[in-house]
Nucleic acid binder design. Sequence first.
DNA 1: AATCGCGCCCAAACCGCTTTGGATGCTGCA
DNA 2: TGCAGCATCCAAAGCGGTTTGGGCGCGATT
Lengths: 362, 362
Amino acid sequence: MNLKELASKLGLSPTTVSRALNGYPEVNEATRERVMDAAKRHNYRPNARAIRLATGRAMAVGHVIPIATRHEIVNPVFADFIAGAGETYSRNDYDMVLSVVPDDQEEDTYRSLKSKGNVDGVIVHAPKMDDPRIGLLHDIGLPFVVHGRATGSALPYSWVDVNNRRAFLRATEFLLDLGHRRIGLVNGLEFMDFAIRRRAGFVDAHAARGLVPDPEIMVSDEMTEVAGYRAARRMLVLPNPPTAFLVASMISGMGVRRAIDERGLRMGRDISVIIHDDDLSYMKNGEDVPIFTATRSSVREAGRQAAEMLLDLIAHPGSPPQQRLLEAELIIGQSTGPAPQTSLSQPLPAQPLPAQPLPHSP
Amino acid sequence: MNLKELASKLGLSPTTVSRALNGYPEVNEATRERVMDAAKRHNYRPNARAIRLATGRAMAVGHVIPIATRHEIVNPVFADFIAGAGETYSRNDYDMVLSVVPDDQEEDTYRSLKSKGNVDGVIVHAPKMDDPRIGLLHDIGLPFVVHGRATGSALPYSWVDVNNRRAFLRATEFLLDLGHRRIGLVNGLEFMDFAIRRRAGFVDAHAARGLVPDPEIMVSDEMTEVAGYRAARRMLVLPNPPTAFLVASMISGMGVRRAIDERGLRMGRDISVIIHDDDLSYMKNGEDVPIFTATRSSVREAGRQAAEMLLDLIAHPGSPPQQRLLEAELIIGQSTGPAPQTSLSQPLPAQPLPAQPLPHSP
DNA sequence: AATCGCGCCCAAACCGCTTTGGATGCTGCA
DNA sequence: TGCAGCATCCAAAGCGGTTTGGGCGCGATT
């Protein structure tokens, strides 16, 4: 059932039917109702391909996911962001198209998306310092919103980001207020923009009290359970181990907790831990009471907002770039407490460590 | 730069240019090269919207992701599956469109995808017993491949699945061979097809040796860290606790491990654990040596194969349904060992449990 | 010499919508 | 009465490709 058939069935021209369905004023209300009714009865749904060609709009938004042989973007955070953005798209009758491409083809994918007209705009994921994608998208004139920011980028651009610096600043202050003076930082990879900002917040909070954090207990690595475990493990066997950890993610935090457990220490009593919680739908930080004290910010909500911003940009071409900075809240859980009075610098009566290679901090 | 412009620049008709670029035989080889060359020089890329309308094909595959207020499909496994499927699509110049919709709109979404012509086929995720989507898609004539199977479905349909029953059968046998007689099952939600099959494998392995597993130590719940922790915790305080656990996922396994650590037990020595490992890209089961003994099967590879199957189905309409059963391999890690000689039924000199509500098995 | 077949190319129809540019008839006002 | 103005509808031209149905020239066949 297409427009022409429906029109002839109604004894009307395709023009009028099209206008009736799309709410144009130059059609009699009685006629419109008749058309609407017939459309529903015959289950008519206009062909999306024809609409796209006729209007010149793709009614679709792209997300490019580079696949590397090394560490991948395809991470749990990404999935939840996509879910949030997807909600917005389907509410607005937009399609979400995902392009999973080898990372050396990412640039060409954006060019192709634009020139083939597959999408009206894109979301840029996981920005790095001086991210080249911003200049590229600006050049080819494809509307975009960055999830995060790209420090060092000269051009203005639209973004939605969490105030990562402030979040880690506050978390660090909270630990300092509890009396902790040696805080281990288990950060994400510090060529990622968000990790850079978190580190800055961590350092600044120290600096504000005349302290300088020890580089020995600041680690930058992938946000996996194993990496978190290794980082914490290494720090805990130092002569002067940290009394608290600030950790980049829930998953890393589980690794940190494992290292703590393994040493026979008790999280929240012997060692405090604060994580960043992206509020993932399938990885809740506890149910009624939070397990970890955390800086929390819903990445799903960020997805919704980024998508809304992009649709707005698409609807109003030539409008200036928009920005939105979301604040993380500090959730107090069971993993933090006052710094222990007794020095932990003496070897603990803990279980011997199982034989495993001890990686060094990168 | 569109076809017409390119044609006039070459002094050819659009017909010939189109044919030259698409490899049709009725064009002189010299002419073809001239066209190819000009297309490259002018960076001509045919408009996807026009192609779709003209050919009547969407050149796109849909994935519908229902969003529930309760437990969500948007899980880590899903993300990796998507990544695998996405690789296949982009290699074949297909788009992947994700529809994130409230779960009560899932059916209408499939209808709409079909009648509006957005996609040429869909992948069905997370099949349940007697899944109604199979009948629906069959009725509306939209090609589809199911990731998993739907026990009880009468119609034949295409699917890609892991041999979940066999995987858990072998894992259970392995534990029984090690002398374990009380094995706790920490399963996924048992209205999901894969969880039903895993349970069957677990039960069948017992039955083959004349054993009947104790329902008291078989739990079905979400595959989260917290749920895994709670399930294991509850079983470990039983008068007759299990000496081994068979666990549905890596994340659940981390919760189980936490419960074990908390009791002061040592995984692999006091308690054995086998998990199912979906081989997620960002959640590796160790690096050189596996942490957990595991039944491993790459969900990403399943995504690739499901996508390939679907594209084949689309390319050959009317061809019979295809099926593909992937076998999981049993990876021996550090989390399993012989059943302890001494009975664990006596209360252990472990740390007291922190006050927390003890949920009962559903 | 007439015809056939083939290689090569083109004009035009078509895909299913939107949108421009009228056409028609009726009302209201000078 | 004449005409502008408005409400309502339609024919046709697009969007940018693909595909059908020839057309033309030339060597080979009869």
